[in-house]
């Protein structure tokens, strides 16, 4: 048989998907036990691919392996989905045909999100006092105008509100209030407060950029829609 055709058939096979899923499970299990020995995993502040290149292969081989196997799984998923649509388009109800493919597309979007994140994400932290500012890479300026700290009756920190001004390279300024679970998000930039200090009033700011975040959200929505539709259809089919 033509070797190219053989490769095509392997990539089209559900057995290939099963093997790849098993290999990823095994690699992740290995990683879960190896990872705690490399504390660097807890403080990756540059793109993952750049960070991985600087690590000893001993502690990250499983992650390189996973990236390789996930690449194959992506191609396999894409081929299987296209093949399924072509083969079943006349015999299956269109929603039943399309739902698994929507789930697969959601999965591929999530992988793309991780790929984009691994290539271009970063994060940095800085302690900034009330009334002062920091200059970010690219020339943007982030200033803290006001910090409000809330405590409960027992003296526990119960919340905070930090008023910021974000100047886009000297062009225009935006004002926002950052509180827990409510960061300032501008394009793929996320500015949040990690911690606050009462005396003197200061905030530990974190600026992170993740170009994959939007794709992850889109993938999640597609995956959810696909799986809910599939379950609803199965339930409807059982009733009839």
């Amino acid at each position: 048989m033509n070797p190219l055709k053989k490769i095509y058939q392997i990539l089209l096979s559900l057995n290939t998907s099963l093997w790849l899923l098993l290999i990823i499970t095994a690699l992740f299990i290995a990683g879960a036990f190896i990872m705690p020995d490399n504390p660097g995993f807890g403080s990756i502040d540059i793109p993952l691919f750049d960070w991985l290149k600087r690590q000893n292969l001993e502690s990250v081989w499983w992650l390189w392996g996973t990236i390789g196997v996930l690449s194959l799984l992506s191609v396999n998923t894409l081929f299987c989905s296209i093949d399924s649509i072509i083969k079943k388009r006349r015999v299956t109800h269109w929603l039943l045909l399309i739902s698994p493919q929507v789930i697969h597309t959601g999965f591929l979007f999530m992988l793309l999100a991780h790929l984009l994140g691994a290539s271009g994400s970063y994060h940095g932290e800085a302690a900034v006092a009330e009334g002062s500012a920091v200059k970010l890479s690219g020339g943007d300026i982030l200033a803290i105008k006001n910090i409000e700290i809330e405590t409960d009756d027992s003296g526990y920190l119960s919340g905070w509100g930090v008023d910021i001004e974000y100047n886009h390279s000297g062009n225009f300024t935006e004002s926002a209030r950052i509180s827990p679970n409510s960061p300032f998000i501008y394009k793929d930039l996320n500015i949040m407060v990690k911690d606050v200090q009462a005396y003197p009033e200061a905030a530990l700011l974190q600026v992170s950029r993740d170009p994959g975040a939007v794709w992850a959200l889109a993938g999640s929505i597609l995956f959810t829609l696909g799986i809910l539709t599939l379950i609803a259809l199965r339930m409807k089919m059982e009733k009839t």
């Binding site: 679970n181 996320n190 949040m192 992170s208 993740d210």
Partner: peptide, 8 residues
């Protein structure tokens, strides 16, 4: 993502 700036 909202609490720590990353979804992973």
């Amino acid at each position: 993502y909202l609490a720590w700036g990353t979804y992973w």
